[in-house]
Amino acid sequence: MVERALELDMVRAGYGETVVLEDVALAVAPDEIVSIIGRNGVGKSTLLATIMGHTNLHGGRVLLHGRDISHVATYRRVVDGLGYVPQEREIFPSLTLRENLEVAARPGPWTVETVFELFPRLSERAANRGNQLSGGEQQMLAIGRALIGNPTVLLMDEPSEGLAPVIVEELTRAVKRLTKAGGLAIVLVEQNSRLALDIAPRAVVMDRGRIVYDGPSATLRDDPVKLEQLIGVVKS
């Protein structure tokens, strides 16, 4: 049996009493990169939030490396190997860039220095406070902050949103380096499906809280009509 780094087993979840995700089943292998695409509001971010434990789990299970973490506290999930780059970046505004990294550091190959190697621009602004950074720098910091926890599963929520194309290119290069390095499963939620299909070999399409496609990205790249059908609107 293939070992699964992350698994969602018939998950029903939402905020409070509402149900956003319906019967979601997903399995990610230890070195796999999966993208999650779909229109606004279909539940992509809720999916990541559920894995992190920010939502109300009405049914099903979430498993990390085979262990049921459905009722485990968020911080423990991170200690056990989850890394999270949220949609709003959510940098700690009153901490310096360096402190933002230091509070999230866990033992492993990723350190402040190696993060600065990945994103050289950050080392120049190490002493600046979180709320003094530009959007692109905040995004890089958010990714670095997730990495410095030395996760085995990395969750990224719309990293390209609101960024200039130049920055997006830089980010794409960095993420591709990550994927080549190995040892990390990545789940990438993206509004920009073209970018997502480019970075990740496997694509999952969601619609109205359910998964409607789970397969090779190549298929969707080569068949734009099908992609349009699945997503439901003209793709960006």
């Binding site: 506290a73 968020t74 911080y75 991170v78 949220p86 509070v103 866990r106």
Partner: peptide
């Protein structure tokens, strides 16, 4: 100190602090 930084982080954004592995409780 690191603990001081963690407290400040948790004051800034509690949920995010938990999401980087800080045991806020």
């Amino acid at each position: 100190t690191n603990i001081g930084a963690r407290i400040r982080a948790a004051v800034d954004n509690r949920r995010m602090a938990e999401s980087v592995g800080i045991n806020v409780d």
